[in-house]
Structures are given as C-alpha cells and as structure tokens.
C-alpha cells in the first residue's frame, strides 16, 4: 500500500491561495488505512477549512483514487459541487491527486505527501520493504531487500558504519546485511556471500513507469 501523510494545514491553506470554495476528494483505500485521507480525515478537513473561512462545496471518497476512469465517473456524479468549487483538495497519494487533475481542468491541490510502498506491521505502523526498483533481487538476498532495508542500498555486504549489527544512520535499526547474513547462514544458501552482485540495471524501471498488458 502507498503510505501517505497529511501536509501541515498551513501549507495546504497556502497552496489553496485565494480559492475560497473547495471540493474535497478522499480515497477509500491506502489513504484511509494511513488515516490521511479517509472519511474521518475528510470530515476533519472540512471542519478545519470552514473554520478558517473557506467554503466547502462538497466531498467524495473515491474507492481507489488511482483508478482514473473511476475518478472521472465519480466526480461527474458530483458535477454541481465540483463546478461550484474554485479548487479541488485531494487527500490521496500522488497517483490519486493526478487522477483528479487529469479528470478536471480545475485547480487541484495536494493535501498529502506520498512516502513509500509500505507493509502494514500493525494498525498505524508501516514499514518500507520494497522500493519498486523493477529488478528484484530477493531471490539472491535471502528474501530481504538490501536495496530498501540498507540505507545506502548496498548489494554486496555491510558498509564500514555497521557495528554490533546496527546501522550507522540509526542505532535502533538493524543492519540489513546482518539480517540477510543471519538468514543465509540459517538456510545454508551462502553463495551470494561469496559471489559479488553486479551493479543494478536501471533500464528495467522506465521513468515514468509504463506497463501495457498484451492480452
């Protein structure tokens, strides 16, 4: 899931600028789980905007704001409220925000910062395990991704800052390579401790990313 966080309210107000009336868009998927753009947060935003003198013309929670066709269709169902607004405030990830800006030729304001593809550890506690690098090496790294778990993304072992199995950037964080090493030793599959991993191939992630399934 895409982990997102609400921007400071002052920043949102400043981005709204002189748009006096606002239509709010939330997302029922990731932003709801992250408590950054679900029903409750959209309602709170509405309250906050109203108390700071803006008019809220209406709101909608889209089932998946990254789904472009659905966003277009759902916004059409609230046509009047959308038309009445000077700006749309979107409480979804960057993908969701851009589904909205693509659907409506009107000022679109981002209320959230999108952070990472996250695993849910427990309620309200998210961790990044995958960087979406397009060139998965989990089969060679004992199922733990060093591209993500190592703060430097090192592919061939720990850096000189590792000590007591901890990361130089955060003494509370375990060194990714300490975890990988332990798991490789446990499984006896230690080939990748001997053989060096080549540089990553970044052509596998075109930027911007595109994928069209052929049948």
């Amino acid at each position: 899931m895409i982990i997102s966080q609400q921007k400071p309210f002052e920043e949102i107000l400043s981005a709204l600028g002189d748009s006096r009336s606002v239509f709010i868009v939330g997302c029922a998927k990731c932003a709801t789980v992250c408590k950054s753009g679900g029903e409750e947060e959209v309602w709170q935003m509405q309250e906050a905007l109203t108390s700071s003198g803006r008019e809220v013309t209406g709101s909608i929670i889209i089932d998946e704001a990254c789904h472009m066709l659905r966003v277009g269709r759902d916004l059409r169902s609230k046509q009047q409220m959308v038309d009445d607004a000077d700006a749309l405030l979107v409480m979804a990830c960057g993908a969701g925000i851009q589904s909205v800006s693509a659907a409506i030729p009107k000022k679109t304001v981002a209320a959230l910062d999108s952070m990472f593809l996250g695993n849910i550890k427990r309620f309200g506690h998210f961790e990044q395990k995958c960087s979406l690098c397009g060139d998965c090496i989990l089969n060679e790294s004992a199922g733990i991704c060093p591209v993500t778990a190592c703060s430097k993304g090192l592919l061939n072992g720990p850096c000189g800052g590792m000590d007591e199995g901890r990361c130089e950037t955060d003494p509370d964080a375990e060194c990714a390579w300490a975890l990988i090493f332990a798991r490789m030793k446990e499984s006896g599959d230690t080939l990748n401790l001997v053989k060096s991993s080549p540089p990553k191939n970044y052509t596998k992630i075109p930027k911007p990313g595109k994928l069209k399934l052929s049948k």
Partner: peptide, 13 residues
C-alpha cells in the same frame, strides 16, 4: 566492527 564474520565476507569480495 562486530560481528566480525559479517564484515569478513565483504572483505573477501
């Protein structure tokens, strides 16, 4: 740096 064996495989590389 400890654990030493964790640093050793990289030194060999």
């Amino acid at each position: 740096a400890e654990p030493f064996e964790l640093t050793l495989f990289k030194l060999r590389k």
